[in-house]
């Protein structure tokens, strides 16, 4: 039987995968993809909780509204983020995290 716990574990694993990618990867674009994965994992947890937190016998739609907002915000973040990455690439010809090392104490 599939419980809420199953969904939570899947969401947790996806979140952890994304986090591991953010820490381990050097390609900024892939790091950014991993960040999107983390956001989506959080959305899965939210939707899971909302499905099993019944209000009047229906899923809780305040939580799903938040999911709607997160997806929108994520899209805006991707757009701005990729614009910054493109601008950086134009000056550096690289998307390696290690090329971003001019700022140091």
């Amino acid at each position: 039987m599939i419980t809420l716990g199953h969904y939570l574990v899947v969401s947790g694993m996806l979140f952890a995968l994304g986090l591991a990618g953010v820490i381990a990867r050097r390609n900024i674009i892939i790091v950014y993809m991993c960040l999107e994965m983390m956001l989506s994992a959080a959305n899965l947890a939210l939707v899971g909780f909302s499905r099993f937190h019944l209000v009047n016998g229906l899923p809780d739609y305040t939580a799903q509204s938040l999911v709607f907002f997160t997806i929108t915000v994520a899209a805006a973040e991707v757009a701005v983020g990729l614009a910054i990455i493109v601008a950086l690439f134009r000056t550096k010809q690289s998307v390696d995290v290690e090329s971003v090392t001019k700022l140091q104490g």
Binding site: L35, M38, A41, A42, F49, A63, T70
Partner: peptide, 10 residues
């Protein structure tokens, strides 16, 4: 943001 949303979810 990701961590925040995940925290909100929990």
């Amino acid at each position: 943001t990701g961590i925040l949303v995940y925290g909100i979810a929990w």
